[in-house]
Design a protein around this nucleic acid. Structure first.
Lengths: 141, 141
DNA sequence: TCAATAGTTTGGAATTATTCTAATGAAAAT
DNA sequence: ATTTTCATTAGAATAATTCCAAACTATTGA
């Protein structure tokens, strides 16, 4: 019963997908459920695939990739490039930056208000700044 | 004559490799020559391999990768992660940041003095900050 | 100087993340 | 209900990178 604000907010998810111009297919609804109903998350395609499997959701890896990219293009996810080996997708699309724990491959958000980059030179002519990414790389000591 | 500061500073290259604890093999000397005798550069393994080929240097791609990583570990190169698809290696190891032209996959240095990051929170306990990377992503407009 | 040792290079196979493809299935439009 | 459009899927294909075992080279010590 009672579909609390988070759990199983299916209608909400469907609206979200529609808003992004995406058909609310079974797979997309279930994946966006996993993605957006657990606070801020940083996941790779493999991680999401695994999580879907655990949850009993049948989705191919190809669809995982498709969906992650579509959501990214729609501005509902942000792709984070910190490790050449894999791509992370961040469900937090607000302004913020990251700590990256290189030893474990873990990302931690740094709220946008706390951090500031000063002195960025003008973008070369013919280009515009799309985003400024800050990655604070950490090592266990 | 004296081997001007740049051109054909073979002895210099050998000393550099020795200093890094690496045997000055033919391949390493030639590759470090390409890397360090042309100012600040940003290259991928494939780019260096190609460049070596052009210069008539016979080296396998495996050795290119080995050498790039060894030089990186020795602190003579800095690996730059801006694109999930490939790794760049930067011959400028001084403090600086980068513009990244996403449309062309090109990196441009931003001198360290010009840019500053303020408000980085303390590193979580048990970790230390290894480096703060700033990437200003550009798009053609 | 030369053999013994330790470290290096190499081609090709192997691995890994990701993308592509063509066929099948499902949602939207008529 | 049917057609049209878009999505999903398994598996093949790609691309960057790493691994491997054999062949080679620098260094060391007699």
């Amino acid at each position: 019963m009672g579909e609390s604000s988070q759990a199983t907010g299916k209608a909400h998810l469907i609206a979200r997908l529609r808003g992004a111009g995406l058909r609310p297919t079974r797979q997309r609804v279930e994946l966006t459920g996993l993605l957006f109903e657990g606070g801020d998350r940083h996941l790779t395609a493999e991680m999401l695939h695994e999580e879907a499997a655990q949850a009993g959701i049948r989705v191919s890896l190809a669809t995982i990739y498709n969906t992650l990219h579509q959501l990214t293009d729609a501005g509902l996810l942000r792709q984070v490039t910190v490790d050449a080996a894999r791509s992370y997708f961040d469900t937090n699309i607000g302004e913020h930056q990251h700590f990256y724990l290189e030893d474990e491959g873990t990302l931690i958000d740094i709220p946008g208000a706390e951090i500031a980059v000063a002195g960025v030179p003008n973008a070369p002519s013919g280009t515009r700044v799309e985003r400024v990414d800050v990655v604070v790389r950490l090592r266990r000591d």
